[in-house]
Design a protein around this nucleic acid. Structure first.
Lengths: 115, 115
DNA sequence: ACGCTATATGCAGTTCACTGCATATAGTAT
DNA sequence: ATACTATATGCAGTGAACTGCATATAGCGT
């Protein structure tokens, strides 16, 4: 029976991660594809430190992983269980998108250089 | 965009309800079928007041409803979304069962009256 | 009416997560 | 080396959730 209690505790820990609007928003954005901190910062309209804090929570729970690319750090979801829960709750993932306020290479349009 | 933020807040509230081992245990037991407070009390091995507290949280969130039958109050899950999340996380519901320490009519075996 | 059982509610102490702010690290460019 | 950008970390204040305990309600049997 004790192993069952632990099962509930474990499951509760996963739900705890999702029980937060900002983290949910971050994860929903990451469902679209890997994104850097500045991207999430622009989408959530929250201070950078705040985003990093929530990302740390998700990272330490092995829900997301980070991948450095020069100055930028790209995060992506690696927990299939979380992905299923997100789909169940928020519906199918939306397509990736560029974000206005984000200066990362993925978001800055390749503009004509000599206009 | 504000309605999206609210969507995250709403979803987070649901996850918050599930982000607790005792509530998860209670809901997993209720998946087997309606159960009275004394039943849950026996299963969780927690004081009655504690069980009622958690049930109140679930009731006020419209996840469960109560139905009085004499002295006993039977609870059951009415939120399909929560049922799906439980199945996703804990697997399929187990069959109903009688519980030793529970004095309610559903659990007390109909013993031979004159033995 | 009285007592007994099943359940609900109120309240207080404690813990813990959330949030903001200041600062540290690390990579890049000049 | 210096300056700048992107991100991470540390710390403290606040508030909310968890928990336990005492008590209230409500139905049943005598």
């Amino acid at each position: 029976m004790n192993e069952m209690v632990n099962a509930y505790t474990e499951a509760a820990a996963v739900f705890q991660l999702l029980a937060h609007p900002s983290r949910l928003h971050i994860l929903d954005e990451l469902r679209r594809g890997p994104a850097c901190v500045c991207h999430l910062q622009a989408v959530l309209e929250r201070p950078q430190a705040y985003i990093s804090q929530q990302l740390r929570v998700l990272r330490e729970a092995d829900v997301v992983v980070d991948e450095k690319d020069g100055l930028n750090v790209y995060y992506r979801i690696v927990d299939a269980r979380v992905l299923r829960l997100l789909e169940q709750t928020l519906g199918p993932a939306q397509p990736a998108r560029r974000v206005a306020g984000c200066p990362c290479p993925h978001c800055v349009e390749q503009e004509a250089c000599c206009s």
